[in-house]
Simulated scan of single mutants.
Amino acid sequence: MWPESEGRRGPNEVASCLFDYMKERSLQSVKEIHMFSNNCGGQDRNRYVAFALWFARNHLSLSKITHTFLEKGHTETENDSIHATIERATRRLEVYTPDQWYTAVRAARVSKQPYKVKEMTAKDFVDFKSMSNKVKNLQLVTMGRKLCGAEPGSLP
């Protein structure tokens, strides 16, 4: 989570959050990441998120990243349940600051472990947009083939 003063809600922020999560999991010796997304082009189905996944695969100790897009009209995920739980828990609260939101989200889940909240700041966001624009012929390819125009380690 982050306040509006630290970042927007676009594809670069989503890509940065995904990369941060994959980096954390990689440090825990996880080798495969399986993720599911809806078909929101503005947030998860775009070249910046695709580039972030490619970058993570080539710069972290991950052997496989599988990104599955759910069929339109059938995109309800666990995240929807999480958002509903948070909405119910905060419905009657007066929340004014980002710190209050972080606390409210952590406390929203009462029957199981609290939700884990990563407090993102501007320095946590990677500029995947600029990085991907340096790659020529960025395109989806068949399994087993490298992404055209870029080699691992060739980007900052």
Rank of each mutant, 00 (worst) to 15 (best):
M1N: 09
W2Q: 10
P3Q: 05
E4K: 10
E4L: 07
S5A: 10
S5D: 09
R8W: 00
R9N: 14
R9G: 13
G10E: 13
P11D: 09
N12F: 01
N12M: 01
N12K: 02
E13Y: 02
V14A: 12
V14K: 01
S16V: 01
C17A: 10
L18A: 09
D20E: 04
Y21E: 14
M22Q: 05
E24C: 07
R25A: 12
R25H: 01
S26E: 01
S29N: 14
K31H: 03
K31S: 08
S37M: 00
N39R: 02
N39E: 00
N46H: 02
N46M: 00
N46F: 00
N46Y: 03
V49P: 08
V49C: 10
A50M: 00
F55K: 07
F55N: 13
F55L: 01
N58M: 06
H59E: 12
H59P: 03
L60K: 05
T66W: 00
H67L: 03
F69D: 13
F69Y: 15
L70H: 10
K72D: 15
K72W: 11
G73K: 08
H74R: 13
H74F: 12
H74C: 10
T77N: 11
E78F: 06
S81E: 11
S81W: 04
I86K: 08
E87R: 11
T90H: 05
T97R: 06
D99H: 11
Y102F: 15
Y102T: 08
T103E: 13
T103I: 00
T103W: 01
A104R: 06
V105E: 06
R106T: 14
A108G: 10
V110K: 15
K112A: 15
P114F: 00
P114S: 15
Y115K: 07
K116R: 11
E119N: 05
E119R: 12
T121P: 06
A122N: 12
F128C: 10
M131K: 11
S132C: 09
N133H: 06
K134A: 07
V135A: 07
L138K: 04
T142A: 13
T142H: 07
M143Y: 09
R145M: 09
K146A: 10
K146H: 12
C148M: 05
C148D: 13
C148T: 08
G149K: 06
A150D: 03
A150E: 09
E151Q: 09
G153N: 14
L155F: 08
